[in-house]
Amino acid sequence: MAISFKVNGIEQSFDGDPTMPVLWYVRDVLNLHGTKFGCGTGQCGACTVHIDGSATRGCLLSVDAVAGKEITTIEGLDSEGNHPVQKAWRAMNVPQCGYCQSGQIMSAAAFLSSTPKPTDDQIDQSMAGNICRCGCYQRIHEAVAMAATDTTEG
């Protein structure tokens, strides 16, 4: 039986392997390549998407678990790519190779919507599930703090 859900606001239904993780579904079936594969075991955060607004690791979540839900990938975060987090990321020149950054941005965006005025420790704790092997952490931290100001002021 086909499973139905929304991806970036568009109705989708899937009748393939219901155990397929959302990561591989969006990448291989929908060709939405912004969501990245990093570890496949929930440890790196490269695959982070929003499920009904909460940051979730797409590599561990099978499609049958998202029936009726709303999936947002980096491509759907903001139609212009101008979410405060994305803008802060650009203002701080955060990325090096960039591979982890979709996941970082999706984690930060969900975190700030639930914690609009985070402390430094809260930023580090909430972002600790996202690995950046290039080591952009200092700028990730600063960009999250900057985006927080933008969200609270805007």
Partner: peptide, 27 residues
């Protein structure tokens, strides 16, 4: 000068190795 891929990276459009597909491609 920011890196040339900055906008694409922050919007998920930057293309890495796994982000290529061609007609009839297997995995």
């Amino acid at each position: 000068i920011p890196i040339v891929d900055l906008h694409d990276i922050t919007t998920g459009k930057a293309r890495y190795g796994a982000d290529y597909t061609t007609e009839g491609m297997k995995f």
